[in-house]
C-alpha cells in the first residue's frame, strides 16, 4: 500500500481529528470574511449556544450508543423550563429570596426531567414500544403541555438575578453555569468511556442478547440511560431560563434534530454500539459556530439548517468511506 493511502486511511480513521480541523477552518474562514468574528464576546455567545446543545447531545450520545433514540430532548427542555418558570413566578411573593427560589426552580426542572425519563423508559422497557415511537409520544405530549400550561405565552416574573448568572464574567468568556456544564461534560465523557456504566451502554447497543447473556440487566440499564438523557435536557431547559430570564413554550422546539445532528456529525453510529464522546462535543461546537458565523458574514440565519444538513451528509459519507477503506 502506498504511503499516501496509509496516511489517508489513518486520517479518515480518526473522525475527531477531521472535525477539529473543520472547526478551526470554520473559525478561520469566518474571521477572514469578517474580522469582528474573532472576539471574546462572540465566542462567549457561541459558548452559550453550545452549553444547552452539548447537554442534550451528550444525553443523545448515550441513548444512540445504547441502540435507541431520544426524540423528546427538545420538548423536555421546553416543559422543564416552563414548569420551573411558573413555579418561580409563584414563589417570588413567598419571601424565600431569589437564591432559594432559583434553587427550587432548578429542582423542579430536574423533577420534570425525571418524570419524562421514567415515562420514556417505562414505554420502552415495559410496554416494549420502540424508542423512536415512545419518545415521539413524549415529544408531542411535552410540547403540547408546555403550551397548555402557559397559555402559549412566555413566563417571566421570576427571580430578578437569574439573568446575572448567565453573564460571561469569567475571562469574559465563560458564565458560571457554563463552567458547571463544562465540568458535567467532562465527567460524563469519562463515564461513557472509562466506567462500567459506559461499557454496558456500548455492549447493549452492540448486541443486547450478548449483554443479557452476560448477566447485564438490560432494561434497568436502558432506564438509567433514558433518565440521564431527560435529566440533561432538563438542565438545558433550566439553563435557557437563566439565559433568557423567562420560560417559553417554544424553547427547545426542534432541538432534538440539532442534538441528533451533533451526534451524527460527531461520528456516533445510529445503529448503536459505536461512537466517541469527543466527536459529539465537536459536532455540537461546529453547529454553534456555524450559527453565529453565518450572521457575521451576513447570511440569513435560516441558512444554518442548510449548512448543518450538508455537514450531516458529509460526516456520514466519510464514516461509510472509512468502513469501506477498512474492509
Amino acid at each position: 500500500m502506498s504511503s499516501i493511502k496509509v496516511r489517508a486511511k489513518s486520517a479518515l480513521g480518526n473522525q475527531q481529528v477531521l472535525l477539529l480541523i473543520v472547526l478551526v477552518a470554520m473559525i478561520i474562514g469566518f474571521t477572514a470574511k469578517s474580522p469582528d468574528f474573532f472576539a471574546r464576546p462572540v465566542f462567549a455567545n457561541i459558548l452559550s449556544d453550545w452549553y444547552p446543545l452539548v447537554l442534550i447531545a451528550i444525553g443523545e450520545t448515550f441513548v444512540i450508543i445504547s441502540g435507541g433514540i431520544d426524540l423528546s430532548v427538545g420538548a423536555t427542555i421546553g416543559i422543564s423550563g416552563v414548569v420551573s418558570a411558573i413555579t418561580m413566578e409563584h414563589l417570588t411573593n413567598a419571601h424565600y429570596g431569589p437564591d432559594v427560589t432559583l434553587c427550587i426552580g432548578f429542582f423542579v426542572a430536574i423533577g420534570i426531567g425525571l418524570i419524562v425519563g421514567i415515562l420514556n423508559s417505562l414505554m420502552i422497557t415495559k410496554a416494549e414500544v420502540v424508542p423512536f415511537v415512545a419518545t415521539l409520544v413524549t415529544l408531542g405530549a411535552g410540547e403540547g403541555l408546555s403550551v397548555v400550561f402557559t397559555g402559549g405565552s412566555t413566563i417571566g416574573g421570576g427571580p430578578s438575578n437569574a439573568i446575572n448568572l448567565s453573564v460571561a464574567n469569567i475571562f469574559q468568556l465563560f458564565s458560571k453555569p457554563g463552567l458547571v456544564i463544562i465540568a458535567l461534560v467532562i465527567i460524563l465523557g469519562l463515564y461513557l468511556h472509562k466506567s462500567r456504566f459506559g461499557r454496558y451502554t456500548f455492549a447493549i447497543g452492540s448486541n443486547p442478547f450478548a449483554a443479557r447473556a452476560a448477566g447485564i440487566n438490560v432494561n434497568r440499564h436502558l432506564t438509567k440511560v433514558y433518565v440521564l438523557s431527560s435529566l440533561l435536557s432538563a438542565v438545558a431547559g433550566y439553563y435557557f431560563y437563566l439565559r433568557l430570564s423567562v420560560g417559553a413554550p417554544t424553547t427547545g422546539v426542534g432541538a432534538e434534530l440539532q442534538a441528533i445532528a451533533a451526534v451524527v456529525i460527531g461520528g456516533v453510529a445510529l445503529s448503536g454500539g459505536q461512537g466517541n464522546y469527543f466527536g459529539t462535543i465537536l459536532g455540537a461546537a461546529i453547529i454553534s459556530v456555524v450559527a453565529s458565523g453565518l450572521l457575521f458574514i451576513n447570511v440569513p440565519a435560516n441558512w444554518k439548517q442548510v449548512v448543518v444538513s450538508i455537514l450531516i451528509f458529509v460526516a456520514v459519507f466519510l464514516q461509510q468511506l472509512r468502513t469501506r477503506v477498512r474492509k
Partner: peptide, 9 residues
Amino acid sequence: QDSGLAPHL
C-alpha cells in the same frame, strides 16, 4: 447459539 459477543467491543 446466537447471543455471542458484542462486535464493537
